[in-house]
């Protein structure tokens, strides 16, 4: 590896392999490459790994592996060049109308942008899928226009509805389950991206691209019903 990652303990049963602190495609590629190399190495005692924007969290059984021994092993990890499936580009319906746009007015006021401008910026961007995590089907995106950079809330807000489109800290995400959050809710997608009967359970993949296609409230309702009945509400860009 050109730059050595930082190894940071997260208790006695987990270790963070940190490649940087930014949202950056090249950095994220390193995380995904390390994740694949780790899976290849099949080190005894590793339970699972969680790729994020800029780091990989490795969960392990501390009866089998000690933190120092794991770090020593990871320093010797072979980073084999590997063919990666080409990224796909998904078009995802999004409704920015009430009642789905719960925090649009708040964001508009905080950023001093008209609500229409906030929506146009959010729907006009092409995003890259950097990570899942946080909750089932949550999809974390890079590519949020810098005009929409807003700090997280100092304290979490009440749960957002299923499919909420959230922004905070220069990041964007699709929240596939109702959860309390420190982010701001701009709208919602009728798509249901997580299905435990499917393997893998998330419909889209790390590294894929995403754009949002605005739809009105009636279309949202129709598509949500179809999604609940098993029809995919998302499609690949031609």
């Amino acid at each position: 590896m050109p730059t050595a990652p930082r190894f940071l303990p997260a208790g006695e049963s987990a270790l963070v392999v940190e490649f940087g602190a930014a949202i950056d495609a090249a950095l994220n590629d390193k995380v995904h490459a390390f994740d694949r190399a780790l899976a290849q190495a099949a080190i005894p005692g590793i339970i699972e790994a969680v790729p994020t924007y800029r780091s990989l969290m490795i969960h392990f059984d501390p009866r089998v592996l000690a933190t120092d021994a794991l770090i020593a092993r990871l320093r010797r990890l072979e980073m084999a060049p590997e063919a990666v499936a080409p990224a796909r580009h998904w078009l995802i319906p999004a409704c920015y109308e009430p009642p789905h746009a719960e925090d649009l007015a708040e964001v508009s006021a905080a950023l001093n942008l008209a609500p229409e401008r906030v929506v146009a910026l959010h729907a006009g961007a092409t995003y890259r899928i950097y990570m899942f995590g946080f909750a089932p089907g949550y999809v974390f995106l890079g590519g949020l226009p810098p005009e929409l950079a807003i700090s997280r809330r100092p304290k979490p807000r009440p749960p957002v509805p299923q499919g909420a489109l959230l922004i905070a800290g220069g990041q964007a995400l699709i929240a596939n389950r109702p959860m309390p959050t420190g982010w701001y809710n701009l709208g919602a997608t009728p798509a249901l991206l997580f299905d435990p009967r499917r393997m893998p359970p998330v419909a889209v993949d790390l590294g894929d691209r995403i754009s949002f296609v605005p739809v009105d409230g009636a279309t949202f309702a129709t598509l949500r019903q179809a999604a609940a009945d098993g029809a995919p509400a998302i499609r690949q860009k031609a």
Binding site: A10, G11, S13, A14, V16, E18, A21, A22, I23, V50, T52, Y53, R54, S55, L56, M57, H59, M131, G133, F134, A135, F140, R152, R153, P154, K155, P156, G169, Q171, M179, G182
Partner: peptide
């Protein structure tokens, strides 16, 4: 920038108070 969370994480948000993440913690 979001990264991994393990059981028992002591997260300190804007209110400067510890929040210890338990069994149902987000990953």
């Amino acid at each position: 920038v979001s990264d991994g969370v393990a059981l028992g994480a002591i997260q300190i948000a804007g209110d400067k108070k510890p929040l210890v993440l338990m069994a149902d913690h987000p990953p």
